[in-house]
Every structure is written in C-alpha cells, then in structure tokens.
C-alpha cells in the first residue's frame, strides 16, 4: 500500500517536473526565435491602433468596450498560440519528444507556456487599452479575476486545438475556425462579466460569469488531458 502511494507520488512528481522542463525549453526557444511573441504582440498592437483610430475621440459604452477588448485578446492569442505545436511538427522534433516523455507532460508544459504568453500579452494590451480607448473599470478585482479565468480557458482551448491542427495540412486557417466555436462560452461569459465590472456591478453580480469561466476551464483541461494521448500519438 505504502509502496503504491510512493510510486504514485513519484509518478506525479515526474509528470510535473517533466512538464516544467518542456515549458523551460519552449521559453528558451521562444527567447531565441521570438516567433510567437512577435506574431501575437504585432497583431494585438496593430488591431488596437486600428480600432482606436476608427473610433476617434468618441467615448464608448461598456456594451462596446467589453467585446472589443476580448476580440483583440482572442484574435491576438489565436495568431500565435498554435505555434507551440506547429513548430514541433514542422521542425520534426515532435517525434523526438514522443520518444522521451508521456503525452500528458507535453500537454501540461505547452499549456503552461501558452498561459504565460497570454498573461504577458494582457500585461501589455490591457494598460494600452485603458489609455487608448478611455477604458475604466469600476470593479477592478472582479475584472482581474475574469481576465485570469478567461485566459486559463483560452490558453486551454488554444493548446488542445493547436495539437490537433498541427497534424493537419491547412494549419493557419483551421486554428481560428476550430478555436472560435469552442471558445464561445468563454468569450460570452468574459464579455458579459467585463461589461458588468465596467458598469460597477458588485462581485456577487459577476459570480455566475466567473463560475462559468472556472467550470469551463476545468472541463476543457480535464478533457484535453484525457484525449491528448490519442491526439499526440499517431
């Protein structure tokens, strides 16, 4: 019994430490090539600038501000997050990875990398959005929580879809097409919740949106971990 427990603990530790090594390797590669970072940040800044110029000095209501923010975040994320698996397939390192570690560690490592990338994007885009779009949030705490949970959901969807499309021929087009319908519950709840936080709603008013984001992320991560074995192995 004790031996089983210690073997389970060792296996979990190996899973997490290997996921960390994959994350660390991807971070190191991204610092060298800057492929995903450049794609995401250039797309985000270009879109934000275009939207800001087209609106001009007009002061927008929360009904427009909230969806615009999430549209910029969603499409910027979609422009670069697929790269995490596409790079492994294109550079023929995916099989090397398949030979050395379990599929679930690969998923966790890649998911964490995408999450960190998305958080970094938000660190830049949200302050810029505040300045360029006269965006102000009355309930900052709830907004930050929405942003956090929304990012976890988006990163999870993006990671598993990236793994699927990396096996296909028409990768670029497929990624946004497949990710959008699956991300829809995240976008609807995040946009609705963000609108409430701009209008100064209480934390309890945003609770249902937060619950949807949390539950959706848990479901997507669980399903991804269960299915990833079939996606990853050919």
């Amino acid at each position: 019994m004790n031996r089983e427990k210690s073997s389970l603990a060792r296996s979990r530790f190996a899973l997490l430490s290997n996921a960390y090594y994959i994350f660390q390797k991807d971070l190191q590669l991204e610092f060298r090539t800057r492929y995903a970072v450049n794609a995401i940040f250039m797309f985000a800044i270009t879109t934000l600038t275009a939207v800001s110029f087209s609106i001009g000095p007009a002061r927008l209501k929360s009904m427009v501000l909230a969806p615009l923010l999430w549209i910029v975040l969603f499409f910027s994320a979609m422009s670069g997050l697929a790269h995490i698996f596409v790079r492994e397939e294109e550079q023929q390192t995916a099989d090397t990875l398949r030979l050395v570690t379990r599929p679930s560690t690969v998923f966790l490592g890649k998911w964490f990398f995408n999450l960190v990338l998305l958080f970094s994007l938000e660190l830049v885009i949200v302050p810029l959005y505040v300045v360029m779009m006269n965006f102000s949030v009355a309930n900052v705490g709830a907004f930050l929580l929405l942003l956090f949970l929304g990012s976890i959901g988006l990163a999870s969807v993006a990671t598993v879809i990236a793994a699927i499309i990396s096996q296909a021929g028409t990768r670029g087009a497929l990624f946004a097409v497949l990710s959008f319908p699956i991300s829809l519950p995240i976008l609807i709840s995040a946009i609705h919740g963000t609108r409430l936080t701009i209008d100064g709603a209480l934390f309890s008013d945003c609770l249902s949106d937060l619950q949807v984001l949390f539950s959706f992320s848990v479901v997507i991560i669980t399903i991804s971990l269960m299915l990833f074995d079939f996606i990853w192995r050919k």
Binding site: S17, N18, Y21, I22, Q24, K25, Q28, L29, R32, T33, Q91, Q92, T93, T96, V100, T101
Partner: peptide
C-alpha cells in the same frame, strides 16, 4: 530532429532531465 536553436549542451540538459 533535435532543437536547432539550442546548443548541444542545452539539448543534452533538456533530454537528460526529461
């Protein structure tokens, strides 16, 4: 293939650790 943007030592460290 191995990771071409990493050095041989960095590749070794990654594969040894994993």
């Amino acid at each position: 293939q191995l990771y071409n943007s990493l050095t041989a030592l960095e590749n070794y460290k990654f594969f040894a650790r994993i």
